[in-house]
Amino acid sequence: MMNAAPLPRTTDPDSFRALCEALEQAESSDQLERAEVLRAMVDAAAFCQCPECDDKPDRRAECATCNGDGFVPESD
């Protein structure tokens, strides 16, 4: 990836979910350059994967830790 300006830190949960879905789509369709950029954006976000449900669909819906989001605010 080219040297670029720092990525903005995503702090909106809906935007973060959209980033995660876009990353998953890019990876599954072998769009490696797009996936690399999206991965950097996900990594820079103010959220991390839920430690309780691991964002697994069968556990996420009932998860009290993330309230079904699959991710939680990143602890500082």
Rank of each mutant, 00 (worst) to 15 (best):
M1K: 09
M1Q: 12
M1E: 09
M2P: 08
N3Y: 12
N3E: 10
A5K: 14
A5G: 03
A5T: 10
P6F: 06
P6K: 05
P6H: 07
L7F: 10
R9G: 06
R9W: 13
R9P: 05
T11R: 11
T11I: 12
P13M: 05
D14C: 00
S15G: 15
S15F: 03
L19A: 02
E21G: 00
E21F: 01
A22H: 06
A22V: 06
A22P: 04
A22L: 09
L23W: 04
E24C: 10
A26D: 01
A26C: 01
A26H: 00
E27K: 15
S28C: 14
S28H: 11
S29M: 09
S29N: 06
D30M: 12
D30N: 07
E33F: 12
R34F: 02
A35T: 02
V37A: 13
L38F: 03
L38K: 03
L38W: 00
L38D: 04
R39N: 11
R39Q: 14
A40N: 12
M41W: 06
M41Q: 14
V42G: 01
D43A: 09
D43T: 06
A44D: 08
A44M: 08
A45M: 01
F47V: 03
F47P: 02
F47G: 01
F47Q: 03
C48P: 02
Q49D: 11
C50M: 08
E52S: 15
E52F: 05
D54H: 13
D54Q: 14
K56I: 13
R59L: 13
R59D: 08
R60K: 14
A61D: 08
E62W: 05
E62H: 09
T65V: 11
T65E: 14
N67W: 12
D69F: 01
D69H: 00
G70K: 02
F71T: 02
F71H: 06
V72E: 07
P73T: 10
S75F: 13
D76F: 07
